[in-house]
Amino acid sequence: MGNAFAATSTDSLAQAKQLLNTYRKTNLKVGACVQGKSLSYDATLTHDDVADAFSIIPPEDFNGDVLAEIAVQNRKAVAEDPNNALLAGMTDQEKEIWTQAVNDCSTQIDFEASGGAEGRAKVEEAQRAALASPEVQAASRVYVACMSGAGFTVSLDPYVAPPGIAQGEHGTSEEELALVERYNSAWQICAPPWQQAFDQKLFG
């Protein structure tokens, strides 16, 4: 009886650790996706994530090993969502853009996860179809015209910054910083309509 209990406890602990690792991988994928849109995202897990993963362990399986593992994982995690600090420094418009990007990326990751490699292929195909649609193509031209009106020559892809801006983001001079700030201000006005058209075609 004692051996059977030990085996069950070990299995539950392994399952909880595997679930937490899935949370970690998902957060990292969402983070990479959001950062690919030139936005910031902190993928660090929270104590709530740890508690949720380990909640699958039945009460009768809780023992010293489980409690020790929870303590280890909590030391790696943070008390609150680290992205709250990012949001606190954003304007309402920036928050809206960031939240939309996170939601889009989360939907994309879930879509891919539901079908593995096949799911990823379907997502990429859907994205190509959305980008090639008349609606998104028209929105791309509107975006280019909008940015041109602000003094910037850009490509049809809102998430590809002009070379001068990409270099300026790592600059230190007042001129470089002012240029990047001006670009970001224009982008926050010009990009959302494109994103809305793209999301509408991609997600319906």
Rank of each mutant, 00 (worst) to 15 (best):
R120V: 12
T8L: 15
G64H: 00
E174D: 12
L131E: 05
Y23V: 03
Y183M: 03
T99G: 10
Y41G: 00
E181Y: 06
G204R: 11
G36T: 07
C33I: 04
L179F: 06
Q188T: 11
D157Q: 01
A191D: 07
E96A: 15
Q15Y: 06
Y183A: 01
A77M: 05
H47I: 09
T22D: 15
A113D: 12
P192R: 03
V160T: 14
T172W: 02
K29L: 13
N184T: 10
Q108D: 13
W98Q: 08
R75E: 12
D199N: 15
A139H: 00
Q196C: 04
T22K: 14
N74E: 15
W194A: 05
S133G: 07
F5G: 03
T22P: 07
S38M: 13
V180N: 02
G151N: 06
L28H: 10
F152M: 03
P158M: 02
K95D: 04
F203G: 06
G151W: 06
D61L: 09
L177F: 00
E181L: 10
S155V: 02
L13M: 04
T22R: 15
Q195T: 13
T172V: 06
V154M: 02
G204N: 14
V160N: 11
K76D: 13
F198E: 02
L67G: 03
N84H: 07
G36K: 05
R141F: 09
E94L: 04
S40C: 08
K29I: 05
L202S: 05
A130P: 04
L87V: 10
W187C: 02
V102D: 01
E60P: 04
A113G: 11
N63M: 05
A79V: 12
S155Q: 10
L202Q: 04
K37F: 12
S148Q: 14
D49A: 03
G151M: 09
E118D: 13
K95C: 04
A161F: 15
T8K: 15
Y159I: 08
E169M: 15
I57N: 00
V78R: 03
Q200E: 14
Q18E: 14
A138S: 12
Y23F: 13
T46D: 00
E124T: 11
N3E: 07
L86H: 03
F203I: 07
H47L: 07
G149T: 03
D199F: 07
E60M: 14
S148L: 12
S148W: 09
P158T: 04
N3R: 05
S38N: 15
N21Q: 15
F203V: 07
G171Q: 00
V123A: 13
A43P: 09
E176K: 05
D157I: 04
S133F: 05
N84S: 10
V180D: 01
T26I: 09
V72N: 13
K95N: 10
L20T: 02
D104R: 08
Q167L: 15
L86V: 06
N3C: 02
I189G: 03
M1Y: 08
N103T: 14
V136G: 01
